[in-house]
Design a protein around this nucleic acid. Structure first.
Lengths: 133, 133
DNA sequence: CTCGATGCAAACGATTTGCAAAATT
DNA sequence: AATTTTGCAAATCGTTTGCATCGAG
């Protein structure tokens, strides 16, 4: 038996208006939610909401290394990785998780059991490669 | 012909006193350098130095997601990844780079050419696994 | 003398927090 | 009425920057 999950209003607004596969900073989420719904709460509430949504598995938080956390809707329990083009900024979402195959190897070699991981790759996308960047 | 690299004094002190395979925050580096050498410059110089050392390839900067950058001596050009135990905090350094094998696959599948990547894995180390954490 | 290195304090930017007011149940 | 959510401003914290001074070549 699972208790029905009760999310605050702000979380519900976010879930309703945030699109999957879009990496957004808290600031940006706040701005968009306000635009979509003038009665949407303030910025600090956004931070509080994202914390809840991450914990509940609705949102994945991603760190691209530029000093701010980015958030992204995911199918609960799922996660994936990003290929970020350094030239045009395009973000490609990998369908598969590159680490899955590594799991067993890491247990055998290091005795280490991976539960969470973070992987981001940077480089050049197809288009920019052709432009000879 | 390569120009002889001239590093500021603070960088030289850091290279001399920092141990390989040890992840340290700027604050921590500052403290240690001061301890090793009372004439070592201040904290802001440490930040400026790390920037140089990263750019020159002496140091790798790592983000474990807790809001501060960590720095680590590396053999120039090299890089590697970390297995961080969530229970005891142990950091295991992987000898190999798990991503190398992925490179070709990503080019074929996504047309994406990876130049830089970030990979950190979190979970339970051998010791903590045995403790049934 | 000239230029890069440094010190110091202020600025910054994202995030967090404290507490009182408002809304939900 | 009790509990949860929110607003707002202030506090945090790591990091960066401006600018005057110091020091090596």
């Amino acid at each position: 038996m699972e208790t029905k999950l009760k999310l605050p209003r702000s979380c519900r607004i976010i879930l309703k208006n945030m699109r999957p596969h879009e990496l957004l900073a808290a600031q940006e989420i706040f701005t968009r939610m306000r635009a979509a719904n003038p009665k949407y709460p303030g910025l600090s509430t956004t931070y509080r909401s994202m914390e809840i949504l991450v914990k509940e598995g609705f949102v994945q938080s991603v760190d691209l290394g530029d000093g701010e956390k980015l958030y992204e809707l995911v199918d609960p329990g799922e996660h994936h990785h990003h290929l970020v083009c350094n030239h045009c900024g395009t973000q490609i979402h990998m369908d598969e998780c590159a680490i899955e195959d590594l799991r067993e190897y890491l247990i055998e070699t290091y005795g280490f059991h991976v539960t969470v991981h973070r992987l981001e790759m940077f480089g050049a996308c197809e288009v920019c490669l052709k432009k000879k960047f």
